[in-house]
């Protein structure tokens, strides 16, 4: 069962990796090609030296991802704390609103957000992109962190209050260090979202050197439907996936437990 699952999940990815590493002749003719002209790094050279080069998109995505993660956590931590401490109808209403926005397909917002970007002069600005991204990540982040706050024993914070720690200090010295695993998994999920977001990046960013990875890839793909140079594309997809692959493999435990714990407790 396990190998079947791995085959299902990894075969398409493995095929991309294979495609990126062989010559066009090898792709078309399969094993009929001479060994010397089968494997190649030419595809990678091509996307690395393209104009703009692939690393530029990766860098852009990383910048947006970092800014989005920082902004989301800055807003989500106090919100989650307040929501957890709050009782009654307000808590119920906010939770419901967060759930509704969490499942909302964000593509339906692109039109109005595009107008907003134009009105406020935020188009073609990487850091500005983190504003809508943070908003789109907030519902999930707040729900996950609220569940994490709920996990902490209330007596811990009481003890800190008795010692005279005010709220910012309680957060800094007691609560946030204990929430570190949840903060990490929330941060990773926010970064993943930001790295992968497409419709808003597509409409907000038009200058090629500012594109994040998803619209950049789609733009190359859009150049032609049937005669695309697949080897180069595969190399681009492999490079674009590599950072996430590393994140998922390194932080696998905290991603899985962060999501499952949040779902159980939320």
């Amino acid at each position: 069962m396990r190998s079947l699952l791995l085959l299902w999940s990894l075969a398409p990815l493995a095929w991309q990796l294979y495609t990126s590493l062989v010559t066009p002749e090898a792709l078309v003719n399969g094993s009929g090609v001479a060994a010397g002209s089968f494997w190649t790094l030419e595809n990678y050279r091509q996307v690395w030296l393209a104009d703009p080069p692939i690393w530029r998109y990766l860098l852009n995505s990383a910048v947006v991802g970092g800014a989005t993660t920082a902004l989301t956590l800055t807003l989500a931590v106090p919100c989650a704390y307040g929501l957890q401490r709050q009782g009654g109808r307000l808590r119920w209403a906010v939770t419901l609103a967060l759930l509704a926005t969490a499942i909302f397909p964000t593509v339906l917002l692109f039109l109005a957000l595009l107008q907003l970007a134009r009105a406020l002069g935020l188009a073609n600005n990487l850091l500005a992109l983190s504003l809508p991204y943070a908003a789109l990540c907030l519902p999930l982040a707040v729900l996950l962190l609220r569940a994490a706050f709920a996990e902490l024993p209330a007596e811990l914070e009481d003890a800190a209050r008795l010692e005279g720690l005010n709220l910012p200090r309680r957060l800094r010295h007691v609560l946030l260090p204990l929430l570190a695993p949840s903060l990490a998994s929330t941060a990773i999920l926010v970064f993943l979202f930001s790295w992968n977001e497409y419709p808003i990046a597509l409409t907000w960013i038009s200058r090629p050197e500012l594109l994040t990875l998803p619209p950049a890839i789609a733009r190359i793909a859009g150049s032609s439907l049937f005669t695309v140079p697949y080897g180069a594309f595969a190399a681009a997809t492999v490079l674009g996936s590599l950072p996430l692959l590393l994140i998922v493999l390194i932080f696998q435990r905290s991603i899985v437990s962060g999501l499952t714990q949040g779902a159980i407790k939320g």
Partner: peptide, 17 residues
């Protein structure tokens, strides 16, 4: 406020950080 009372408390769970 709790922090200004100079009151110490030992909690049931001990509430150690």
């Amino acid at each position: 406020s709790a922090g200004d009372r100079r009151v110490a408390m030992v909690f049931q769970s001990y509430a150690l950080y």
